[in-house]
Simulated assay, not measured.
Amino acid sequence: MSHVADEVPLTLDGQPPKTLGVLDQGALWANLGVSLLGFSGALLLLNPTGDAPLSLAAALVATVVGSLIGTAMVGLSAIPGTRTGQPAMVLLRGLFGARISYAPTVLNIVQMLGWGAFELWVIAKAATAIFDGVAYPVWVVLAGVLTTALTIWPLGAIRLLRRYVTVGVIVSMIWFTWYFLSEAPAPAGGSWTGFAPAVDYVIALSVSWVPLAADFARHSRSGRAAFTGIVGGYTVAQVACLGLGVYAVAIAGAAAVNADNTAVFDPFVAAPLGAVFFGILVLRETDQSFANV
C-alpha cells in the first residue's frame, strides 16, 4: 500500500505525493540535460550565425550563461506546481480560464507526441549504431515498451534514475571526455562575435522544458528543492553535453554531422569500450521519451 501511496494518483482528484527531494529532482533534470542529439548541437553553438564561428572559450561561456538563464526560467515555472500540487496545464486555467486553457493544453499534447516520437527515433538510430545487425523497428518497439514501463510508475522511475542511472551516465561522460580530449584538438581560432546568438540558442534548449516543469515539481517536498534540482542538475549536464559535443563533432567532421546529425554517434561507438558506455547513454535517453509521455 505504501508503494501505491508513493506513486502519482490516476486522477487529479487525488492528493499528489510529495516524495521528491533535491537529489531526485537533480538526477531527473541532469539526465534530461544530456541528449544524444544534443551532442550534434555543438554545431550551432560554435557557429550560431553561420558566418562568425566562436572561439572555444566563447562557446563554453555562452553555454554556461545560457544554461543558467534558461534553467532559472524552468525552475521558476516549477514553483507554482510545488505550491499547488497541480500540473502545468491545470495552472494555465488560472491565467486563461478553463475554456481558453484548452488551446495551450492541446498544443502541449501535440508537442509531447511529436517529441516522444522523435525520441524513439533517436534511441533506435543510436542503438542501431551499436548493434547494426538488429533491425531499426525492433529498437523502436523496445524503446516504446521501456518508455511505457517508466511512465506507469513515474515517481519510481525518477528514484531509479537517482540511484543507478545517473551514476552510469556520469562515468560514461567522464570516459568519453578523457578519450575525446586525447583524440581531438580543441577548436582553434574564432571570436566572440556570435556570443549573444549562442547564448540565445542555449536558452532555447532549456526553456523548451517549461511546459513540463510543474508536472514533476508538484511532487517535490519544497519549491526550493525543485528549483535547485532543476537549475543545478540541468545546467551541469547541458554544459557537459555541449562541451563533449564540440569534440565529438571535431572527430566526426562538421560536414558529416551537418549532413546527418546521427553521424555524431560514430566517435562514441568507436572509442575504447565505446559500445558499453554509449549503450548507457542510449538507455538513459528513454527518460526523455518518458518525460514527454
Rank of each mutant, 00 (worst) to 15 (best):
E7N: 13
V8T: 15
L10R: 15
T11V: 13
G14T: 11
Q15G: 12
K18C: 14
A27W: 03
G33A: 14
V34D: 04
G38V: 10
F39S: 06
S40N: 08
N47W: 11
T49D: 10
A52G: 11
P53T: 11
P53S: 07
P53E: 10
L56T: 12
L56N: 10
A59T: 07
V61A: 01
L68S: 04
I69E: 04
I69W: 00
A72T: 15
A72Q: 10
G75I: 02
G81N: 03
Q86C: 14
Q86D: 11
A88W: 06
L92G: 06
G94F: 09
G94R: 07
I100Q: 11
V106C: 11
L107W: 11
Q111K: 13
M112K: 12
L113T: 03
G114C: 05
W115N: 05
E119W: 09
W121P: 01
K125E: 10
A129E: 02
F131Y: 14
V134T: 11
P137K: 09
P137R: 09
V140G: 10
T148Y: 09
G156C: 04
R159C: 05
V165Q: 01
G168N: 07
V169A: 01
I174Q: 07
F176H: 12
T177E: 02
L181W: 15
A188K: 15
G194W: 07
F195W: 05
A196D: 01
P197G: 10
D200E: 14
V202S: 03
I203K: 04
V207M: 04
S208W: 09
L212K: 14
F216D: 04
R218G: 06
R218F: 08
S220G: 06
F227G: 01
I230L: 07
I230H: 09
G232A: 01
Y234E: 01
Y234R: 08
T235A: 00
V236S: 00
A237C: 05
V239F: 00
L242P: 04
L244A: 12
A248S: 12
I251G: 04
V257K: 14
A259L: 13
V264Q: 02
F268E: 08
F268D: 13
V269H: 12
P272W: 10
P272K: 10
L273Q: 00
L273Y: 12
F277I: 02
L281D: 04
T286Q: 04
T286P: 02
D287A: 00
D287Y: 05
V293A: 06
